[in-house]
Design a protein around this nucleic acid. Structure first.
Length: 275
DNA sequence: CCTGCTACCTGATGGC
DNA sequence: TGCCATCAGGTAGCAG
């Protein structure tokens, strides 16, 4: 379920564990997790990954949108958690539970876990070799994301919610925080983006940044604990204002929160205060 | 070029 | 209890 704040928190917690470490050996337990996006050639991809990672060392942990990057002395490991992927840490090289890909480091083992097999672990010479990364739009937590930049992005006839989910426009918002940002900005998720007035666009800009920063703070306290196999972010539900609250009173005006479908996915909103 | 729909996977949940 | 339908926080690929 990770969106930008969760992946950012994972990147920060991972740095002291892996930066400067050598990958002694990579193990691909479930080749489906490393197959190319075309979907075929998983076994071959697994062999390639193992060969390319042997002996490399991790220079830096980075993030691009919802992608986690392990930059190496040669090339880069790109991970995407999609809906359910997560990381686990083992102090030894002995694994436990479902692990798709294991990176045996000189100090322990980093495991990529995703029972559902939506997520991916891949190696590229550089991150931009993956089309999904090359196409990413502005990162909303960088200075480049200004109110003017958002106004530019809003030149579209699409509904606001679908536009905010588009990773090629803004990188890192997902289904939860797009609903949350629109609630905070008091904007109807069905509104066509180019109908949004300048003052409303400035409100939305502030709301996006505020929602993400608040979630990031929550994700960092307590920090991710990869050693606990059952670990997941605590307390996130309490900071959500509309997401998942169908039928419950709006925290601003008391009207019932509604769930609607947009692009085949759930959107939550209060249509009394979101116009 | 843009937009919208579906497939991709597996597990959890709720109704009957 | 068992079974089936539905849902899940994402993205790539394809058709129009």
């Amino acid at each position: 379920m990770p969106e930008l704040p969760e992946v950012e928190a994972v990147a920060r917690a991972l740095r002291p564990l892996v930066e400067g470490r050598t990958i002694r050996r990579a193990r691909v337990l479930h080749p489906i997790a490393v197959r190319p996006s075309s979907g075929r050639g998983a076994r071959r991809a697994a062999q390639d990954l193992v060969a390319r990672l042997r002996g490399r060392w991790i220079t830096r942990v980075g993030r691009r949108g919802k992608y986690l990057l392990l930059e190496l002395d040669r090339g880069c490991v790109v991970m995407h958690f999609r809906l359910d992927g997560q990381l686990v840490w083992f102090d030894s090289h002995t694994l436990a539970g479902h692990v798709d890909v294991a990176l045996d480091l000189d100090s322990g083992t980093l495991g990529f876990v995703d029972r559902r097999h939506f997520g991916r672990v891949q190696h590229f010479t550089q991150p931009d070799d993956l089309p999904g990364i090359r196409a990413l739009g502005v990162d909303p937590l960088t200075p480049e994301f200004t109110a003017e930049k958002l106004a530019d992005i809003l030149r579209s006839s699409r509904p606001l919610k679908l536009l905010l989910l588009d990773q090629a426009r803004i990188a890192g918002l997902g289904n939860i925080y797009s609903s949350e940002a629109l609630w905070r900005a008091r904007l109807d998720p069905r509104r066509r983006a180019h109908r949004v007035l300048p003052a409303e666009a400035r409100r939305l800009h502030k709301a996006i940044v505020a929602v993400l920063l608040r979630a990031l703070e929550c994700c960092l306290h307590p920090a991710p604990d990869f050693r606990d196999p059952g670990w997941w972010f605590q307390g996130l539900e309490e900071i959500l204002r509309v997401y998942g609250r169908e039928g419950k009173p709006c925290r601003r005006c008391g009207a019932a929160v509604r769930r609607i479908e947009q692009g085949g996915r759930s959107t939550y909103a209060c249509f009394r205060c979101q116009k």
